[in-house]
């Protein structure tokens, strides 16, 4: 899933300076699961903002509404009437970067602010602990690396590791960070597949250096986009 972290409160407060009627939009999917931007977190942030602005003698009217997914027009549509009636002077989103942009795009006349920093594609290790596993690089190498991603987990994105800096199974950058290539070696060793990495992995072209679009076979862009 996509994981995100709430921005520091001071940064959020600063962004909303000068705005007095705000709708904070939560997202019920990934950011809810990682305890960052769901219904509960929207309520908590709104309360904090109300209290802080009251203390500043500059009250804010901030409302909250959480939809199923901010990256989907079908769900965003339910905000249309709320936003029209609410006469908000700003929107805030607690969705990932994708959701924030889709919300801003739907209401181009209203300033939209992010309340979270999106931090990657991660697994849920235990409640509250999420570990990045994929950089969505568009060319998966997991087949020859024993199912461990060096693009994500190796701090140098090496394709012919481990480097000389590997430190008793940890990465040179930190004892808390496992060395991806040490783990790859261990796993392939256990599977009797070390030949997979004895071959030189030649230079690869990076496929994520320009904005990417996915169009499935048999589909095409509509001639006119409907809101």
């Amino acid at each position: 899933m996509i994981v995100a972290q709430r921005k520091p409160f001071a940064e959020i407060k600063e962004m909303l300076q000068g705005y007095n009627k705000v709708l904070n939009v939560g997202c019920g999917t990934c950011v809810s699961v990682c305890l960052t931007g769901g219904e509960k977190e929207v309520a908590v942030l709104n309360t904090e903002l109300e209290m802080a602005r009251r203390l500043d003698d500059d009250p804010i009217d901030i409302q909250g509404h959480t939809i199923e997914r901010q990256c989907d027009r079908e769900y965003l549509a339910e905000l249309d009437s709320i936003i029209e009636e609410g006469k908000f002077d700003a929107l805030m989103s607690m969705a990932c970067g994708v959701g924030i942009q889709f919300l801003a795009e739907r209401y181009p006349l209203i300033p939209t602010f992010p309340a979270v920093d999106t931090s990657g594609l991660a697994v849920n290790q235990t409640v509250g602990w999420y570990e990045e596993r994929c950089r969505s690089c568009s060319q998966c190498v997991l087949g020859f690396t024993g199912g461990i991603c060096p693009i994500t987990m190796c701090a140098k994105r090496l394709l012919n590791g481990p480097c000389g800096g590997t430190n008793k199974g940890s990465c040179e950058i930190s004892n808390d960070q496992p060395c991806a290539w040490f783990r790859i070696w261990e796993r392939l060793s256990g599977q009797g597949r070390l030949d997979s990495i004895k071959k030189i992995n030649t230079t690869r072209g990076w496929k994520d250096q320009a904005p990417r679009n996915l169009m499935q076979p048999g589909y095409k862009k509509p001639e006119k986009m409907v809101k």
């Binding site: 701090a155 140098k156 994105r157 012919n160 800096g165 040179e172 950058i173 992995n201 030649t202 230079t203």
Partner: peptide, 21 residues
């Protein structure tokens, strides 16, 4: 060495190709 060790720890590490490449 990883940029984190140096005097510009927030720099973007290029690592476009690796040493073998």
């Amino acid at each position: 060495d990883h940029q984190q060790f140096g005097d510009h720890p927030d720099a973007m590490g290029v690592f476009d190709i690796d040493s073998t490449q």
